[in-house]
C-alpha cells in the first residue's frame, strides 16, 4: 500500500510540474505589455522601459519561471504588479465567493438529482419517469447564462423578490449574503442538476437490472426497499466519482454564472487579470485551480485503490 501512495504522490508532483510549465508558457504568449497597461497610452517609451526593468519583466523567462515556481513552493503566490498586493491576499475573497457558489450548487444538485434520478429509474417505463428524463434533457440543453439572465429578469426585476446581482460577504451580513446567493445557485443547480439526474438514473437502472435486486424482489421486498438497501451504496459510489469528475466543469459553470450575477469570484478574477495582463495573478490563480482539480483526482484515485481490492492487487503486482 505505501508504494501505491508514494507512486500516486510522485505522479501528482510530476503532473503539477508539467501543468506549471504549460500555464507559464501560455501566459507568456499573451500579447500586450503589462508596463504599457499599467502606465497607459500616455506614457513615454522610456517610462515604460523603466517600469519593465523594475518589474523584472526583462529577465530571461527561465529565471522568471523558476522564481515563480520557487515562490509557490514556499506558499507565496507572488505579488500583483498592477495593484502591488500579494496574490494570496487578493484571492482570499474570490476563493470564498466561488467556494460558496460551488458548495451550495453541488449540494443543491444532489438534493434535486438524487430523488428525481431514482424516480425516473424506477418509473422508467411509465410516463412520469419518462417526463423526468425528458425534463433533464431540456435542462441540459439550456445555456446556463440564459437561465441566469431569465431568472434575474423574472425574480429580481419583475417580482422584486431578490437582488439582481452582486455579492455581500457572509461576515458582513448573513441575510444579504444568502439573498445574493440564491439566484446564482439556482441557475447553476438547474444546469448541473439536470446532468446529475441522468447519471443517477443510469446508475440506478444498472443496479435495478442486477441479480441480487431481482432476488430480493422475488423474496417479497418492494422495489423501493430493495433499491434502498442494495442500490444506494453502489449508486452512491458512482455518484461520488461523477462529482469528482465534475469539479472542473463546475468551475466552468461558475465562471459564467459569476459573470451573469457580477460575483467577484475566481473566474471573473482570472478574466480581469488576463485583460490587465497581470501575469503573476493569471499564472498563480490558474495554477491554484489546476492544483485543486489534480489533488481531488489523486485523492479519488487513492480512495478507489483503498476501497477496490482489484485495483489494489493490480497496483501491487
Amino acid at each position: 500500500m505505501p508504494r501505491v501512495v508514494l507512486g500516486r504522490l510522485l505522479t501528482l508532483v510530476l503532473s503539477l510540474a508539467g501543468a506549471s510549465v504549460l500555464i507559464f508558457l501560455v501566459v507568456q504568449a499573451l500579447p500586450g505589455d503589462l508596463a504599457q497597461v499599467m502606465l497607459g497610452e500616455r506614457a513615454t517609451p522610456a517610462q515604460i522601459e523603466a517600469l519593465r526593468e523594475r518589474l523584472g519583466l526583462n529577465r530571461p523567462w527561465v529565471v522568471r519561471y523558476l522564481d515563480w515556481v520557487g515562490d509557490m513552493v514556499r506558499g507565496d503566490l507572488g505579488t500583483s504588479a498592477l495593484s502591488g498586493l500579494r496574490v494570496t491576499d487578493l484571492v482570499a475573497g474570490p476563493i470564498r465567493v466561488t467556494g460558496w457558489l460551488v458548495l451550495w450548487s453541488t449540494l443543491g444538485s444532489i438534493l434535486v438529482a438524487l430523488p428525481l434520478g431514482m424516480w425516473s429509474a424506477l418509473r422508467r417505463r411509465h410516463w412520469d419517469g419518462f417526463a423526468v428524463n425528458a425534463l433533464s434533457q431540456f435542462g441540459m440543453a439550456v445555456p446556463a447564462f440564459l437561465a441566469g439572465i431569465l431568472l434575474v429578469l423574472v425574480v429580481a426585476v419583475r417580482w422584486g423578490w431578490l437582488p439582481a446581482n452582486g455579492y455581500v460577504p457572509l461576515a458582513r451580513d448573513p441575510g444579504e449574503w444568502a439573498r445574493h446567493l440564491v439566484l446564482p445557485v439556482v441557475s447553476l443547480v438547474l444546469v448541473q442538476g439536470a446532468l446529475l439526474v441522468r447519471y443517477v438514473r443510469s446508475a440506478f437502472v444498472e443496479v435495478l437490472t442486477e441479480d441480487h435486486i431481482t432476488t430480493a424482489r422475488s423474496v417479497g421486498w418492494t422495489k423501493l426497499a430493495a433499491l434502498w438497501r442494495h442500490g444506494m451504496r453502489q449508486a452512491g459510489l458512482s455518484l461520488v466519482t461523477v462529482l469528482g469528475l465534475q469539479v472542473a466543469s463546475l468551475f466552468v459553470g461558475a465562471i459564467v454564472v459569476e459573470n451573469v450575477f457580477v460575483l467577484p469570484g475566481l473566474g471573473s478574477m482570472v478574466l480581469r487579470a488576463v485583460v490587465q495582463r497581470d501575469f503573476i495573478v493569471v499564472q498563480s490563480v490558474v495554477m491554484l485551480l489546476v492544483v485543486a482539480v489534480l489533488v481531488v483526482n489523486t485523492v479519488v484515485d487513492l480512495l478507489q485503490a483503498v476501497l477496490d481490492p482489484r485495483i489494489r492487487a493490480k497496483e501491487q503486482r
Partner: peptide, 23 residues
Amino acid sequence: VRATDVLYAFPAVLLAILFAGAL
C-alpha cells in the same frame, strides 16, 4: 494517462480565456 489527467484539469473556459488573450 497522466498527461491526460493534467489536461483534464484545464476546463474549456480557462483555456479559452488564455487562448483568447494570446491569439
